[in-house]
């Protein structure tokens, strides 16, 4: 990516006047008030990645994925030997591409996790939304309890770490089940 920055409105290249100022300044081209905070990373050169060296001496450790390339590091996940090309460094640890993919899909490597399902919100939604059509609660109340109990220990939101919604959903579901039980008891006893 070029170190030049475009005006977000007119896409003209910004050359000066708006960078690292305490207040907004107009774009030289369209006059849109802009404030651009620039950091040294913008001008950092992207260095080419390491290249794998070929195995020169017979018996020298070679890469699991490229047997003709020299191994430089073992994978922290599976222990396989990796060449410089297959070595993916993450927070000081070295992984092979396969372990990196597994770590991402199974949520084993926290910093690679980019999505989570909010089961507590699902449970609360199941408990609250059908109240509008009350007859549905006969089905959704047990479903709410199932979701709340089944996913009680599932990873929650990275940023909100309380089980308040689960607890609220369970209470509402129990009230609904209690209501239905009372309703059926009343019907049964009145006959």
């Amino acid at each position: 990516m070029s170190p030049l920055i475009q005006c977000p409105k007119c896409r003209a290249w910004l050359l000066g006047g708006v960078f690292n100022r305490p207040d907004v300044a107009p774009c030289q081209s369209c006059g849109t008030p802009l404030q651009v905070e620039v950091f040294p990373a913008l001008f950092r050169k992207i260095l080419p990645g390491p290249t794998a060296q070929a195995v020169l001496v017979e018996g020298e450790s070679s890469c699991f994925f490229h047997p003709q390339k020299k191994a430089v590091v073992p994978c922290a996940g599976c222990g396989r030997f990796l060449c410089a090309l297959c070595d993916c460094e993450l927070n000081g640890q070295h992984f092979c591409p396969a372990c990196l993919e597994t770590g991402k899909s199974k949520g084993k490597i926290k910093t690679l996790e980019n999505q989570r399902t909010r089961y507590d919100t699902i449970a609360l939604g199941l408990a609250i939304l059908p109240v509008l059509i009350f007859y549905l609660t006969i089905i959704t109340a047990p479903m709410t309890l199932f979701v709340a109990i089944r996913y009680w220990n599932a990873p929650q939101s990275i940023v909100r770490r309380t089980r308040f919604r689960f607890i609220l959903a369970i209470i509402i579901a129990l009230l609904q089940i209690g209501g239905w039980t009372a309703f059926f008891i009343v019907i049964a006893t009145s006959k």
Partner: peptide, 25 residues
């Protein structure tokens, strides 16, 4: 963090990698 219905999507911007903030009034 972006919440879309029942899922949350995360994007991490490491301080060492941030090049610029562009603010448009």
């Amino acid at each position: 963090v972006e919440c879309a219905g029942y899922t949350e999507t995360y994007k991490r911007f490491y301080y060492r990698d941030i090049q610029a903030f562009i603010i448009r009034k």
